[in-house]
Amino acid sequence: MRMNEEMLNSLRTIGTGGVVVHLTTCSAEGIPNTVGERFVAAFGEEHIVIADMFAQKTKVNLNENPGGVITVAQPVKGRHWAFRGPCTILMWGEDENYDFHGVRAGDVLREWGDWASKEPPSEVPPDIRPPALCQRGVITLKVDEVYSWKPEESGRPVL
């Protein structure tokens, strides 16, 4: 599913006009894991990428249940979206021709595999800045569905 222009524009790090997004994954038994993620971008029009900085539970979950939801919450700009679809972590060392729902691992890793160099978190205050940024790979979600999380219409399909 293709995201619209406004959605694509929202998928940026805070320092470049975006917002922290939240990624929910689940174990095979259905135990959810929901965490805020700062390093986010659109990759093409159908994929969302997030830096994998040793997201431990996320990795375990995606290994056994490769799907997720990414919520973008910026109500003042009218952004109330939840993106759902297959999700994986493309890690350094992956065959660069590995195709994940239309994107090649090598292409994703070359563009976003060293996020801290490309978009350093210079605006983050010292007490919440990570002491070191080590990236293992890129969490990649193929958007199959978009619904609104806006309270009065939660769950309504957006696209």
């Binding site: 689940c26 259905g30 929901t34 939801v69 919520t71």
Partner: peptide
């Protein structure tokens, strides 16, 4: 919070309550 829920088979749905 962003509230993560799932079916028993692990199909996730997240809602946001402010």
């Amino acid at each position: 919070a962003h509230i993560g829920t799932a079916t028993k088979q692990g199909y996730p749905t997240t809602i946001v309550v402010e």
